[in-house]
Nucleic acid binder design. Structure first.
Lengths: 115, 115
DNA sequence: GGAACCTGCTAACTTTTCTTGGCATGTGCA
DNA sequence: TGCACATGCCAAGAAAAGTTAGCAGGTTCC
């Protein structure tokens, strides 16, 4: 049985690069305990909102967290983030397989690929 | 049973940062098939020796590959690299645990820690 | 001796990522 | 109206990573 879907090379790199950061690791850790909204999480982690914003965006882009906009009781718009229950196993074999699907940014990328 | 030792936060980040690179991913993939020496591997991958050198160094620093210096039959010194059979499982829970042991580079690091 | 291999290093440039600070918008409430 | 809280974005400087080019050392063999 396989718990993790076979990641493409580019996906794998995106996820790895995303997780290879203390702030983002802390974000994932915090969200794995309890979902949180941006401002509150920023206070909790002791970093600026702008900074957290960027990291959350990257985490979301990698599919590791998801955002849900809600209205609090007093009418404020709160953007709640929660962690995605991912499972990723890393071994030489997994990497070898992923490399097969690696996009080679040789000289030019095909347009329209990235958002 | 646990195949992977509990990674410390700093170790985890080092490994993730190391693997989050196309060149290094290709190196691991190549070495997982067969060990290779620097110059040969550089040719095989189509990159310069100097560049490969740097990436190999990082991979070794993260404990993902190991080097062994050997003498070929014709007396040349060959530095053979081979991949380490690592198994790393990544989940929110694993990350939450690793974060506990994260070194906080708050304002200053203690000297002599890093090379 | 010179060519063809192997190894390593470092300085300097380029590219990417990280981080900060400011600005704009909206809501509820005294 | 002004304060406190929420959201977002963008420009610009700072820091880190990636890459290249060049140098120096070693060995075999013609």
């Amino acid at each position: 049985m396989s718990t993790a879907p076979p990641p493409t090379g580019d996906d794998l790199i995106r996820v790895l690069a995303t997780l290879a950061n203390p702030h983002r690791l802390r974000v994932v850790a915090a969200l794995s305990r309890e979902r949180a909204y941006v401002s509150g999480l920023a206070r909790q982690l002791g970093i600026s909102r702008a900074l957290l914003q960027v990291h959350l965006r990257k985490l979301a882009a990698a599919g590791l967290v998801t955002a849900r906009l809600e209205l609090s009781e007093d009418g404020k718009a709160m953007n709640y983030y929660e962690v995605e229950p991912f499972v990723l196993t890393l071994t030489p074999a997994v990497i070898a397989a992923a490399v097969e699907t690696l996009t080679v940014p040789d000289s030019a990328e095909q347009p329209g690929g990235e958002r």
